[in-house]
Simulated assay, not measured.
Amino acid sequence: MKALLLSEIVVGLFLRFFIIFSRKEVIIIKHMFNILNLKKLISGLIIILGITFVSFALMYISPGDPVEIMMSSNGSTVSEEVINLKKEELGLNKSFLEQYATWLKGVATGNLGTSIKYNRPVSQEILSKLPATLYLALLSLIISIIIALPIGVFVASNNNKISEKIIRILSLFGPSMPSFFIALILMYFACYKFRLLPVSNDGPSAIILPTITMVVGIASKFIRQIKSIVLEELNKEYVIGLKVRGVSKNQILFKHVLKGCALPIVTMLGLSFGSLLGGATIVETVFMWPGIGKYAVEAISSRDYPVVQGYIVWMSLIFLLINYLTDKSYYLFDPRLRRERGENSK
């Protein structure tokens, strides 16, 4: 949050400088680009730069030598001279700032480096594993909203009833339990107790348990959030006016209230998809799902700096893209924003 605020200040000062000293050029630029989008882009780049710098520093000062871990993984003893030569080859004998500058220069040209452990380009490895993570997160999000939306609306429209209280209590269990604990319970009952699924599964059914694990937590959170959103909308003045005019409860709910709830629900989905991508790391590791999260965990344990940095860059870009698309989707659901945008463009 502080990084975002600082970046907004820097961008604001930058733009003000040009407004004072080159007003005509700024007017031309305003017609070519949307200043708000430009500020968001620059803010996003500054945030990514800060995140990568901090993560690179943490990996640099963390105990353990990636070359020693890599060479001792096969059980053989390697001399100090061979280790030093390998470090020199990989550039790990340089100072922290030199290593970071070299890596950043490669990123600017689209080169995320080569994995120390696997000796393969990081970008290719990430792109090969990213679809599995996106598939798991997207499927979990779709199922979660299908379950949570009707339940959340039902709970909000039947507030203070026994059914609402039961659902509210049950919805507290999902977020209160860690995902790895839910995963272990599912594995015990589905794979060991009732033998519904094999423990090691590479077929189409391999997605079932990871998806259920993620849905349990996210759907429970969605139910409570949707309930709060709908309740807030039901307490607005226009709803009271519709009730006074004799409009039916179902018509108020489905024709007016849900339309007003679209923006906060879209925001909730956008933020949740980003958190699902991050939360999938534990689930992927437990179920051996071949996604980018499991790949990143293995890279951290082996001190594979290029892979960890590449993972952070990709996830940061995905987060920024999701936030950007979420902002743009507001214009689809709110005609007032479209009118304001049309008036400003005139």
Rank of each mutant, 00 (worst) to 15 (best):
P335R: 01
I61A: 10
V215C: 08
N344Q: 04
I167P: 02
P306I: 05
N201K: 09
L90W: 01
L321C: 11
G246R: 11
Y238D: 13
T109N: 14
I28D: 09
L104K: 09
F96P: 00
K2A: 09
K249S: 11
F17R: 00
P290E: 15
Q309L: 02
I162F: 12
F194A: 14
L209M: 15
S301M: 14
K24T: 12
E25H: 09
A296R: 02
C191S: 13
I166Y: 04
V297M: 07
Y118T: 04
Y311R: 00
V54H: 10
V10M: 03
L172V: 05
G12D: 12
I240D: 12
E89L: 03
K2E: 06
I240W: 11
I169A: 15
F333N: 12
I126H: 02
N93C: 13
N93V: 12
K40M: 02
E25M: 09
A137N: 00
V283R: 01
R339L: 15
V54D: 11
T285E: 13
L36P: 04
L4T: 14
F154M: 11
S248E: 15
F21P: 00
S43W: 01
F56T: 02
I69W: 03
V11F: 00
R168F: 13
I47S: 11
L112R: 12
S301Q: 14
L242Q: 07
L36K: 02
I9Q: 03
P204C: 04
E233C: 05
R16L: 09
A296P: 07
W314P: 07
I318D: 07
G279R: 00
S144T: 06
A3R: 12
K236G: 07
M32V: 15
L49T: 07
Y238A: 09
I151P: 01
